[in-house]
Amino acid sequence: MVATTLEPGLKHAHFRTAGLPAMLLLPQLLILLLFFFIPSIRALMQAFLLADPFGATVHFVWFDNFTALFASESYRNSIWVTIWFTLAQNVVTIVVALVLAFATDRVVRFQSAYKGVILLPYAIAPVIAGVIWAFLFNPAVGPIAFCIKSFGIAWDPNLNGWDAMLLVVLAASWKHICYDYIFLVAGLLAVPKSLMEAAAVDGAGPVKRFFQIALPLLGPTLFFLTTMNFVYGFFETFAIIDAVTRGGPAGATNILVYKVYQDGFINLDLGSSAAQSVLLMTFALLLTLLQFKYVERKVNYSI
């Protein structure tokens, strides 16, 4: 029964029945079929169709939905908004997480208490984080908005697009720093002590060692975190946008995933929404491929 030739990902000792594995796979594949494959294929089909608002007639329109998208001012605006939003969020998250991880690596006392508190936002739903930040920066009642105004700076995220963008970037980063932080702490812990000691003997101080030894070794982790931050910024910040700005004012925070929702469920433009979904899917797949490249790299460079 034990076979000697090995397929990839198959245990050396394995069973050779046919019916049982099919039964075991059935629930997973059935759910994937209903809620993953069919919806994805539907999105692909709809992206090439044009239906009138009542769904009475449907035409095949080739790439019209896509050309209409790229011609539309609001979609191009949404692309730029998404780029700015994800980049800013990425930079803020990684820099703060790196500083905190470096500090955590150096301290001995209270280390686990610090970690425990810094990890807390992971448990908080994005929409709740959004509600709290919307309150803090609310121009009428928010305590932080009050502080900003007391410096004589005008502040109103309901009217000023840049204020709104700053607010969603802060809220999104606040919620996500903990994620990058925990991976960087784990990464720093894996840096070989011998390397650090050798560098210290050569006279490199702690900060220099961090930049010249730890940071390059953290390269793969940073790469992984950057892709994960993009995934987060692109897809999971929907709730923050919906709670804080609803894409406004005047589309200043209308990121792509929020626009899919708006066009699909509020404006009921299914063809356009599906075309946007397809573009987002393509982008998600690109990120996935990048991810796998990273996994490969991690294996090669593992210490």
Binding site: L32, P39, V231, F238, F265, L270, S273, M281, L285
Partner: peptide, 19 residues
């Protein structure tokens, strides 16, 4: 199974709603 990895639910909102 592998294909479904990492294609977040958010990108197929409308068709999944139909499903």
């Amino acid at each position: 199974i592998f294909m479904s990895l990492m294609l977040p639910v958010e990108v197929r909102i409308v068709p999944t709603y139909e499903a």
